[in-house]
Structure formats: structure tokens, C-alpha cells
Simulated scan of single mutants.
Amino acid sequence: MRYLFSLALAALLAAFSPSAAFAADAAHGAQIFSANCAACHIGGGNVVNGQRTLQQDDLKAYLANYNDGHEDAIANQVTNGKNAMPAFGGKLNSDDIADVASYVESQSVNGWS
């Protein structure tokens, strides 16, 4: 009986956990990226400033708080922009931005291959 209760409780917690309910969708992020970001960041590069690519080492070097939360730091940059990068907070909703951040992080980890 105790085992069944533990199993049921674990299932409920998994079903209602924030990470399960709000997990970003990198595949959807790829579509959003293609439509909004790829003109400047094709293949993880940067046509405006070649020093500010989306390669993981560059993200670590110039994104504030990247080491504290990779996707949060990317989402902040996408939302608010900086320097030549425009802010997309008024164009994309928070779910789209989270999806783009997930996609960018997954690609940066894999070297944009």
C-alpha cells in the first residue's frame, strides 16, 4: 500500500512540476529562430559583429549571468536586446522566447553542427 501511495505521489508531482509544465520546445524554437534570428545569426554566427556569435564560448564571454542559467541569460538577451541586437520582447511572447533560448543553447552545446 505504501508503495502504491509513493508511486501515485511521484506521478502527481511529475505531472504538476513547473519543469514538466513549462518545458521549452527547441524544435519550435528552431522555427522561431529561422523566421526572426537567422538573418543575423545563421549557423550560430553574427553578421553584424563577428565577435558576438552564438557559439558557447562566446555566449559565456559576453552574456551576463550565462553561467548562472544558460537559457535564462539567452532569453534575457532576446527579450531586451543590447547594442545592435534589437529587443524581441514586444514581438515574441515569453513562450516563443523560451523556445528560442532552448534552441540556441542546444545548438551552442553541439557547435551549431
Rank of each mutant, 00 (worst) to 15 (best):
N49M: 13
A35M: 03
H41C: 02
N49Y: 10
M85R: 02
G69V: 08
A87I: 05
L63H: 09
P18A: 13
S108D: 05
F16Y: 09
D57W: 10
D95W: 09
G45Q: 13
A8M: 07
G44F: 07
F5V: 15
D57Y: 12
L4P: 00
E71P: 01
G111C: 12
L13C: 08
Y103R: 04
K91D: 11
A23P: 05
P18M: 10
D58T: 11
P86T: 03
A21M: 15
L12R: 05
Y3A: 13
A38H: 07
E105D: 15
G81M: 03
A101P: 01
K60E: 09
P18S: 10
Y103C: 00
G81P: 06
R2Y: 12
E105Q: 12
L7F: 11
N80I: 01
A39C: 09
S34P: 01
L12E: 10
I32Q: 07
D57N: 15
G44Q: 08
N67L: 14
S108R: 06
Y62C: 06
F5S: 14
A30D: 02
G111H: 12
N80V: 00
A15I: 08
S102N: 12
S102R: 15
D57L: 12
A10C: 06
A15T: 12
A27D: 08
K91A: 12
A20G: 14
F16W: 08
Q107I: 05
T53W: 01
A27K: 04
A98F: 03
G81W: 05
E71T: 12
L59S: 02
A64Y: 09
A73Q: 10
F5R: 15
V104I: 14
